[in-house]
Amino acid sequence: GKELVLALYDYQEKSPREVTMKKGDILTLLNSTNKDWWKVEVKATANDKTYERQGFVPAAYVKKL
């Protein structure tokens, strides 16, 4: 199945390749080969529509579930 990670801290994206997350968010882990930056998929809701974004977050800010 898919691997999930838990956001340990809030993170505000600093570039278009990154994604914003809030502490407590559960994210889908896409790639953890880089030890510093993990690629995740974030589900977000805006205007009653759910959309998914993929991007990088600092590996130290998340932990595998």
Rank of each mutant, 00 (worst) to 15 (best):
S32R: 08
W37A: 02
L30P: 00
T45F: 14
L29D: 00
T20L: 02
V40Q: 00
G1S: 13
M21P: 00
K64C: 08
K39L: 15
D25R: 01
K39H: 08
Q54V: 13
S15D: 10
L30E: 02
Q54P: 04
R53K: 11
Y61S: 09
E13S: 15
E3L: 10
Y51F: 12
V40D: 02
M21N: 02
K22N: 08
Y11S: 01
Q12N: 13
E52N: 15
Q54S: 10
T28I: 15
Y11A: 01
S32T: 10
L6Q: 08
M21W: 02
T50S: 10
P58R: 03
S15E: 07
D10H: 04
K64T: 08
L29Y: 03
V40L: 04
K14T: 12
R53D: 03
N47Q: 11
D25W: 10
D25I: 03
A44K: 12
K35C: 11
G55H: 03
D10A: 06
A59M: 05
N47E: 10
K14H: 08
P58F: 05
L29C: 05
L29W: 00
R53S: 04
T45A: 10
K39T: 06
K63W: 08
Q12R: 11
A7C: 12
M21G: 00
W38E: 00
L65F: 09
L65R: 02
W37S: 01
L29T: 00
K14D: 06
D36T: 14
K23N: 03
K14C: 13
V42Q: 15
E3T: 13
R53T: 06
A7L: 03
V40K: 00
E3Y: 12
K43T: 14
L27F: 07
T20Y: 03
F56I: 06
G55A: 03
E52Y: 15
Q12F: 15
L4P: 04
R53W: 06
K2N: 11
G55D: 02
L30Y: 04
E18W: 03
D48F: 08
D48C: 14
L6R: 09
L29P: 00
I26C: 06
A44L: 15
Q12H: 14
Y11P: 01
D48P: 07
T20N: 04
L4E: 07
M21C: 08
A44I: 15
L29V: 06
L65Y: 08
D48K: 09
E41K: 08
Q54T: 11
V5H: 03
K49T: 12
N34W: 06
G24D: 05
A59Q: 05
T20C: 05
V62R: 00
L4G: 03
T50M: 08
K43F: 13
K35M: 10
D25L: 04
L6C: 10
T45I: 15
L4M: 11
G1I: 12
T20G: 07
A7P: 00
L65C: 14
V57S: 00
E41A: 14
K64H: 08
P16I: 10
V42L: 11
P16W: 10
K22G: 04
E18Y: 05
K63H: 09
V19F: 09
Q54F: 07
G55E: 02
K35N: 09
M21H: 00
V62F: 04
T33L: 09
V19L: 11
D36P: 01
E3S: 11
A46E: 14
A44N: 12
D48T: 07
R53N: 05
F56D: 03
V40A: 00
Y11H: 02
L30K: 05
D10Q: 03
E3K: 07
Q54E: 08
T20M: 04
Y51G: 12
Y61L: 12
D36H: 14
V57R: 01
A59I: 01
Y11I: 00
E13C: 11
T50H: 10
Y51C: 11
G24Y: 05
Q12L: 10
T33Q: 11
K63E: 12
K63P: 02
E13A: 15
V62L: 15
S32N: 11
